[in-house]
Nucleic acid binder design. Structure first.
Lengths: 350, 350
DNA sequence: CTGTTAGCGCATTCAT
DNA sequence: ATGAATGCGCTAACAG
């Protein structure tokens, strides 16, 4: 029933041509008469021939595979990213080897090494640490086309594609400013990720520019638990800021949970903003005002960059920033100037 | 700087031994003197030798790779599953090729074919359709060791590992029963997935056994949107059931959002249960009473089954059901009989 | 314990 | 346009 291994030679024999012709007919990379091509193709499919990727890979020096390294695939943000990357790569005939760094640089290093040893055509990586990821990343990039996605490491000349965090934070701050917010506090990741740094810098820049009062920030990591912990901390602090700017949707969601547990109402007592535009933002109650990452575009651009790098190892380093957009929701009181102020309470003011 | 391709022959030459000895020394699969082994290893590492996986794969007929195909990697449930699978496979020296079926059987078929053509050692698949996934799945299983995870297709003799959905639903129903619930309604996936079927059957069996009144179920797919739609439908129905049993956490979360929007309070007006124990259950407000899937165990068991199948293609078909556990939370009023009834309201009853 | 040799399946160069 | 022959890098069978 399952006598699988039908080789190119088998096809050639059955078709009465040489293995060379069979190969040419099937790959279509060289000139073969229409006649024989059709014939060979027919015979091949009749025999159920499938090229042996190992043979081809050995010969060509590469399998059609790229690897991706993310901090945690179970995080919906990375899940969405991978989902789009997979689809995009499929269009290029590339398959995806996935590696999870668990956010640990040591493990990340090991996974990168694995991908290099597997001689993937390219690597897409979301570095887990802005500084400590550098050596392993640079190392991998030396032998394999590599592009950083979403986060990047300090001062290494490696392609990067990500959202414009600075612009995203500006959108958020302008939104809050237009709501009359004067005192804010940041709850975000520490400086171990570039995204964390960039968002924080933009936050401080904008708050300063707008003359807002900044409370001491609380910084740690991009997790739900941290958001909840930070909420407790904020709740026991003397005075609550008017708005809490979270580093991402996960932290924001944790904050919402924690602050509500502490007896605060959102957005009545305090406004909250997220970042990323994941499904969490819509699950949160109230729904999160957040920055939408253009997932599909990010994936497309990343693959484009990788393919370009594969084609030309010496192309100038690409640094691509995509524009994010604001998604205003209930966690900051909704959109700035809607038709109706509020659907339920305090009505009858017309 | 990067004159990469150092082959085994290079190592052999530099070490002054034959290529065979070099190979043996490095793989350790055959007897070589301690002396030469050490020497060869040293030389290899000095030269920065890395085996060429293609050469090895061609020779051995297999690369150390397994493929996984899931409906949607961006769904946190599958994200968690993949996260654990990746870790588990790593322990076995196996790497993971990921494929997303987008829940479409056509695409699923294509992805399975891809994995087979890549000659992966094994395939782990979460079938997207209990019936229509069958042909492609059976086809892939004919040539490649394959195990179904979480969901399975009708009547094909292929290994399966999943949680005991029937038991899970029983736990949920007993929980509701102990809360005095008499009228229930199911909002779940239609019968396109085995998980959906099994949960529904168990639900009906238990409800009947407990003498509960069952309202007409609302069935469609495992998505947040469907949960929200179903909530609207329920809200406009004549009378609300005492408890809504959702097919999974995603639907449950959608229900919570939708029912709250319709002005209902949970658990005061209606109880809600989820299934899976994903992070969503903890993000929901109120937190979801749900069934915890033992992710780590599922992954371990799945890989174990796959490895077993790889070792013995003729081993009897394995059908493994893991026990789930109940996580009682606020969406059903909390745990059945705690010390204190309620922490805030209605106190002072001591 | 070690060396020699033969392919694994394929794409390709060099002839024709 | 086609065929014959070569080698990608590696492991294993077969000598010694």
């Amino acid at each position: 029933m399952a006598k699988d291994p039908v080789t190119l030679q088998d096809v050639a024999d059955a078709a009465g041509v040489s293995i060379a012709t069979a190969s040419r007919a099937l790959t279509g990379k060289s000139r073969v008469s229409k006649q024989t091509t059709a014939h060979v193709v027919r015979v091949a499919s009749r025999l159920g021939y499938r090229v042996n990727v190992f043979g081809r890979a050995l010969r060509e020096g590469t399998g059609r595979t790229v690897g991706v390294v993310v901090p945690v695939i179970s995080n919906p943000f990375f899940g969405q990213l991978v989902h789009h990357l997979e689809a995009e790569l499929l269009d290029h005939g590339l398959d995806l080897l996935i590696a999870d760094s668990h956010g640990e640089t040591l493990r990340e290093k090991g996974r990168l090494r694995m991908l290099v040893e597997r001689r993937v055509e390219g690597i897409i990586v979301v570095p887990s640490d802005a500084e400590e990821s550098a050596p392993a990343l640079q190392d991998a990039a030396r032998t394999t086309p590599l592009v950083q996605l979403d986060r990047r490491v300090e001062g290494v000349a490696v392609d990067y594609v990500g959202v414009d965090n600075s612009r995203g934070m500006s959108l958020l701050m302008e939104h809050l400013n237009s709501h009359g917010v004067r005192e804010v506090v940041l709850v975000a990741s520490d400086s171990t990720t570039s995204a964390g740094r960039e968002r924080r810098e933009a936050y401080e820049r904008e708050a300063t520019r707008m003359g807002m009062v900044m409370q001491d920030p609380i910084l740690d990591e991009f997790t739900l638990e941290f958001g909840q912990r930070a909420a407790q901390q904020l709740a026991t602090r003397g005075s609550m800021a008017e708005a809490v700017i979270a580093g991402d949707d996960l932290i924001a969601t944790g904050l919402v949970i924690g602050l509500k547990k502490a007896g605060l109402s959102i957005p009545e007592d305090v406004l909250i903003t997220g970042f990323d535009g994941t499904m969490l933002a819509n699950i949160c109650d109230p729904m999160l005002t957040t920055i939408e990452q253009p997932f599909a575009s990010l994936a497309r651009e990343t693959v484009r960059a990788l393919v370009r790098r594969i084609a030309d190892r010496d192309a100038p380093v690409m640094f691509s920033r995509l524009s994010p957009s604001l998604r205003a929701a209930a966690s900051t009181g909704g959109v700035p100037a809607p038709e109706t102020e509020n659907a339920d309470a305090e009505a009858a003011s017309s």
